[in-house]
């Protein structure tokens, strides 16, 4: 058994060596390199995840992942804001190279729509928000409510499923952007605002009086949010996947924005050595520089740092790590090994 695996591995290694650079020939990567910039699709505005600050600089959780990816490639990054309806045509048409945009990994998006998901950077679920003075305490009390929701999302589909299966009636009012949904809800067009729970926290923090609104306890769906790329360019998908994994592994291994440069020289951990390009050829295998992961981590830090800086307890969103804690600490964040 073991011998068989060894033989297969050896064959693969031989093939890899034999074909050399040809292994990582990605049209997307090529065009990014020749352009000198990564085009990263983000939301039009979602506090904590992707928003332009007063000076017009994009900030947020998803934005950081874009920056890390660009750093790993050694290029600049261009942010392309897209609303829920625009995001898929934008990716399909090549207007963006990758979507880091609260996009749920679903079967039909993986197949019919022609995308690949390179992993999950935020495990989420759909929730409901209502006005505090409405007296609603549970999603089961929402029979007959008017609900504001984004067009073209998993959210509007889950909403239908939930009310249907609970035998409740509702009226959906559908808008194109998250901002429109928030404004409509805030103005009283709807009783309920529904989207991913993280999105709800973000939207609430952007309201006039955030304290006037509460998020109901029910989570009605699984929303694994992750980076999406076009189907058919597997090498590019691999790069996105492993940059994301590198950020997660960095937290497992205690690498931070501050210490990663030092660790790159001093570490004795063989996996960290491989990751940071001290030994092995993972960078080469991906078609990147040997210090790709080092550059990515130096840019944004590890997963925990990114989380706390943008959406963690000390920010207006005040999200708990929850599922997005490392597997070793009770969450389900689990990156495959670098080997």
């Amino acid at each position: 058994m073991k011998i068989r695996i060894c033989i297969i591995a050896a064959v693969f290694a031989l093939v890899a060596v034999g074909s050399g650079q040809a292994l990582a020939a990605s049209p997307t990567l090529d065009s990014i390199k020749s352009r000198g910039a990564l085009k990263c699709g983000i939301t039009t505005a979602l506090a904590g995840f992707a928003f332009a600050d007063k000076r017009g600089v994009w900030r947020g959780f998803d934005v950081d992942f874009c920056r890390a990816l660009a750093a790993a490639l050694g290029v600049k990054v261009k942010f392309i804001p897209t609303n829920a309806k625009e995001r898929f045509p934008a990716l399909q048409s090549g207007e963006v190279d990758v979507l880091f945009r609260n996009t749920t990994w679903t079967l039909s998006r993986d197949t019919r729509l022609g995308f690949d998901f390179a992993g999950v950077n935020y495990y989420d679920g759909q929730g409901f928000m209502v006005r505090k003075d409405s007296g609603i305490k549970s999603a089961k009390d929402l029979d007959g409510a008017t609900v504001c929701v984004n067009a073209g999302t998993t959210t509007e589909l889950n909403l239908g499923d939930y009310f249907r299966s609970n035998g409740m009636k509702y009226k959906a009012v559908v808008y194109e952007t998250g901002t429109e949904v928030r404004q409509a809800y805030e103005a009283g067009r709807c009783d309920v605002h529904t989207t991913d729970a993280s999105g709800l926290a973000a939207q609430r923090s952007a309201m006039k009086v955030p304290g006037d609104h509460i998020i109901l306890p029910e989570i009605i769906s699984k929303e694994p949010l992750g980076p999406a790329v076009r189907h058919g360019d597997n090498e590019w998908g691999d790069i996105v996947r492993w940059v994301l994994n590198a950020i997660i592994i960095a937290e497992e291994k205690g690498l931070t924005q501050g210490n990663v440069s030092r660790m790159a020289i001093s570490t004795k951990d063989p996996e960290v050595q491989r990751l940071l390009g001290k030994t092995g050829s993972v960078g080469d295998d991906l078609g990147l520089d040997p210090d790709w992961a080092l550059k990515a981590i130096r840019k944004i830090g590890n997963y925990g740092e990114v989380f706390e800086r943008n959406i963690g307890k000390k920010t207006p969103l005040a999200l708990a790590r929850g599922l997005n804690q490392l597997w070793s600490k009770g969450g389900i964040l689990y990156a495959p090994p670098v080997r």
Binding site: P27, S31, P89, Q92, S93, G94, E95
Partner: peptide, 17 residues
């Protein structure tokens, strides 16, 4: 022009929005 046009061109050919 904004959604279908890009599909009409070969891959890698990109028109600005």
């Amino acid at each position: 022009s904004s959604i279908m046009l890009p599909l009409f061109f070969p891959e890698g050919f990109n028109l600005d929005k």
